[in-house]
Computed example of a mutant assay.
Amino acid sequence: MGRMSVLWMCVGLAIFWGCTPKRPVVLPGPWAGSTPTVQAPSTPAPASSTPSAPSASIKEKTLPETPQVPPSGTPAAKPPKEPSPQYLASVQLVHEGDRALAKGDPDGALGFYEQAVQVDAYNGSAFLGLAKVWLQKNAPKRSLEFAKKAEILLTNQPKELRETYLLQSFLYEMLNEPELAKTYKQKAQRLP
């Protein structure tokens, strides 16, 4: 008989008699961390009245490694996360939009800012740019919608958040809501 037929016969008998292992057995040593190996006992192990201690060599191999902590007691700093290509492309599009807006081309700037939002929907600077464009196009309500989105996304960027608050204050003045205008001006003054 070939090895494969013997193997299939053993598997068939194991299934027939219900002797398949119920859980995988992981071997200690250099195999730890690799795919677990299943071992089915060929004969039941004899019951022992006194448990034996594991040998030192097995114990050394199965102990998990402890993480190395710097001597100062503080955990090691994580390396800085590299920005995604989408984020970098979006930032570049925002810069192009800013240039177009500075040249007095709100329609050209609008295209760049919209592309920036499509590439990275979490780029608050793109939404701030859209708010500026719609202000130049004399659509204060639409400008305010984009400024509110920018406010949410720029919470960790104080300089741009301050600019957003000042823009919102101006827009609320245009919309004849002086109390909200005053509130946003105060928010802007609290930021550096």
Rank of each mutant, 00 (worst) to 15 (best):
G18Y: 11
C19K: 12
C19L: 13
T20Q: 13
P21M: 08
K22N: 02
K22R: 14
K22Q: 09
R23G: 04
R23H: 10
P24S: 00
V25R: 03
V25T: 10
V25E: 04
V26W: 03
V26I: 06
V26C: 05
L27V: 12
P28K: 04
P28R: 00
G29M: 00
G29T: 03
G29I: 06
P30C: 11
P30Q: 14
W31L: 14
A32N: 15
G33N: 00
G33E: 01
S34L: 04
S34H: 07
S34Q: 07
T35F: 01
T35M: 02
T35E: 07
P36W: 02
P36Y: 01
P36E: 03
T37M: 04
T37A: 08
V38P: 01
Q39A: 10
Q39T: 15
Q39W: 08
A40C: 02
A40N: 02
A40W: 04
A40V: 05
P41H: 03
P41N: 05
S42W: 11
S42E: 07
S42V: 14
P44Q: 02
A45S: 13
P46R: 06
P46H: 07
A47F: 03
S48W: 03
S48I: 13
S48C: 13
S48A: 15
S49A: 14
S49L: 14
S49D: 12
S49Q: 08
S49H: 14
T50D: 08
T50P: 04
P51N: 11
P51C: 07
P51V: 08
S52T: 03
S52Y: 05
S52C: 02
A53S: 14
P54S: 10
P54F: 06
P54E: 03
S55R: 10
A56V: 09
A56R: 13
A56H: 07
S57H: 11
S57G: 04
K59F: 09
K59D: 08
E60I: 10
K61Q: 05
K61F: 00
K61D: 01
